[in-house]
């Protein structure tokens, strides 16, 4: 975002700067909520057919599965498994079987927590619309405020990338006015690559959308491949979330949370000069 006026003084460290516009903060929390509900309701939907295939259709008389979660045996003897590209792992207690219940993804990770494909779909599509609306709102606001430029890595960022990686590896995190090279890549990757991919692979599972826009079937290599990619991108988003939380904790949770709630961010004293 554009650099705001500094607020003088403060405790140890540098001064407080206005880091995030109200649009950035509002949309951040709206899609935090959306993605939370989308992921857990998506796992509910996944439970109705916990197998991921490649191609247009699902192989029943032949095998085109790349991932399957299931169970063998019955009652107390039931064993849960996950099969990834032919390699099978026992996941009894977590995936496939939990306390004698045969269910791919455990209830604690699904919305609603009871088995209901119908309710899961209601939640999923509600938040899918919300995510789309928030993304559109963000795009307009970010273009209007110049925030889009904050996310695009510059040549200088790319030159600074090796140093930025080394700094992160040594946990030497800088608190500057702008985003670092890795931050830009991570945020731009989520906003411009992962979320559009999520929306497009999701729509490619829609028979109506296929009739209207058949080329995404070819782009992704079939409806079932699109479903598999939808799942894979979900895992990438979950990975982003995990790293995002870790970085907030390492970079100073109070300062980071303050900035995404109020907009005010305390920068390092040596970052006062320019973009960090």
């Amino acid at each position: 975002m554009t650099a705001g006026q500094g607020k003088g003084g403060g405790r140890a460290g540098g001064r407080l700067v206005r880091r995030h516009t109200v649009w950035t903060r509002l949309t951040h929390w709206l899609w935090a909520v959306s993605l939370f509900f989308l992921m857990l309701s998506g796992l509910q939907v996944f439970n109705a057919h916990p197998v991921l295939h490649v191609g247009e259709e699902s192989g029943f008389a032949y095998d085109n599965a790349v991932l399957a979660i299931g169970a063998t045996g019955e009652g107390a003897a039931a064993r849960g498994f996950i099969r990834i590209l032919g390699a099978e792992f026992d996941t009894t207690g977590f995936l496939g079987v939990q306390q004698g219940t045969v269910q791919a993804i455990p209830a604690a990770l699904t919305i609603p927590s009871y088995r209901s494909l119908a309710a899961g779909r209601v939640v999923h599509f509600f938040f899918a619309w919300l995510l789309l609306a928030v993304l559109a709102l963000w795009l307009v606001a970010a273009a209007a405020t110049g925030h889009l430029r904050d996310l695009v890595p510059t040549r200088a960022d790319l030159r600074a990338l090796p140093r930025d990686i080394a700094d992160h590896a040594r946990l030497r995190l800088r608190h500057g006015r702008g985003y670092g090279a890795l931050q830009k890549l991570a945020y731009a990757g989520v906003l411009f690559v992962l979320l559009p991919l999520m929306i497009l692979t999701g729509l490619t599972m829609s028979p109506w959308f296929n009739a209207w826009f058949p080329w995404t079937l070819d782009l992704f290599g079939g409806r079932q491949t699109a479903r598999t990619l939808h799942f894979a991108v979900m895992l990438l988003l979950a990975g982003f979330f995990a790293v995002h939380m870790l970085m907030v904790l390492l970079a100073g949770p109070v300062n980071e949370l303050r900035s995404i709630l109020t907009g005010w961010y305390r920068i390092d004293p040596d970052q006062e000069g320019g973009a960090g």
Partner: peptide, 12 residues
């Protein structure tokens, strides 16, 4: 045509 079940699977 491809039949898409609400459960997630497809069959041609």
């Amino acid at each position: 045509t491809r039949h898409d079940c609400v459960e997630g699977w497809s069959c041609i």
